[in-house]
């Protein structure tokens, strides 16, 4: 007999509360913030005049990565003031993605909707705030009536731009991150359960146990792949935030 039991979805993506109202997502979010603060705190205490190494090297690499690969590419030099926010966003998301492959935790906090949703809302508030701050009501005009479009086309373009800029963007940001991380997590769970079920199956099918190598291989491969996915999703979320802020700041571009 070979039995494969896939637990209810809430057992896969939730954890028992540590205490009332504090579960795995809360633990991972707090740990992510704590690790981020600790890393940058330690890095800030190292002698800055010598060649950076260890924690300081990691922190400086992160800062330069955000500045050169995100801020300068999407907003420009006048957007360097957004580096701390974008750096926080990137580090927080990455550290919330990473527990998906860490034993015991084994769950990316971003695979729950709460985290991507509130970060998307924050991003939405920020880029719209930047637009209104820099252009006043002209931001609405430049967002809804893009220049260079024939006037008759505004009947079609304006509703699309409104839905795209003010409604869809936060949802697309949130759902992209949530869905990717949840899908990765479910794949890992599936192959882990399959490996377990095949290895401990009570069966006379002598080929079944050696065949366990296949789901185990997939499990190892997907675990490695999730490291990349975690980084990539954090990068995509952060660079899109930069793009939205840049567009709100320089709508003509």
């Amino acid at each position: 007999m070979f039995a494969l039991e896939f637990p209810p979805i809430n057992e896969v993506i939730r954890w028992k509360d540590v205490f009332s109202s504090f579960n795995k997502v809360g633990i991972i979010a707090c740990l992510a913030a704590l690790i981020g603060v600790t890393v940058f705190l330690i890095a800030g205490r190292k002698d800055p005049m010598v060649a950076p190494k260890g924690v300081r090297n990691v922190a400086e690499t992160g800062v330069e990565f955000i500045e050169n690969q995100i801020v300068m590419q999407t907003i420009g030099e006048d957007g360097l003031g957004w580096t701390p926010f974008l750096l926080t966003l990137f580090v927080f998301i990455y550290l919330c993605n990473l527990p998906g492959i860490i034993p015991i935790l084994q769950f990316p906090a971003t695979a729950r909707m709460a985290l991507p949703l509130f970060m998307s809302v924050i991003v939405w508030l920020i880029y719209n705030g930047v637009g209104f701050k820099h252009h006043g009501l002209g931001y609405l005009k430049s967002s809804l009536f893009p220049p260079g479009v024939p006037k008759a086309m505004y009947l079609l373009v304006t509703p699309i731009e409104f839905i795209s800029t003010f409604i869809v963007r936060p949802f697309s940001l949130a759902i992209r991150l949530f869905a990717n991380m949840l899908a990765g997590h479910m794949l890992l769970v599936t192959f882990a359960l399959l490996s377990n079920a095949m290895l401990f199956a009570e069966t006379k099918q002598y080929m079944l146990k050696p065949m366990t190598i296949l789901p185990v291989f997939m499990l190892v491969f997907l675990t490695t792949f999730e490291v990349l996915v975690g980084f990539l999703q954090a990068f995509i979320f952060t660079i899109l935030t930069g793009v939205y802020i840049g567009q709100a700041k320089h709508p003509a571009h």
């Binding site: 809360g26 979010a29 707090c30 913030a33 603060v37 705190l41 922190a59 800062v63 701390p84 709460a114």
Partner: peptide
């Protein structure tokens, strides 16, 4: 559906991290 307490914990952790980064950690490192 997002859970209220997950939202509160995650938002709290993020806001604290972001404020510390903006006011203290990043300026010192930079």
């Amino acid at each position: 559906a997002p859970e209220k307490y997950e939202l509160i914990w995650a938002l709290g952790a993020f806001v604290v991290f972001a404020l510390l980064m903006r006011l203290f950690l990043f300026p010192r490192l930079k």
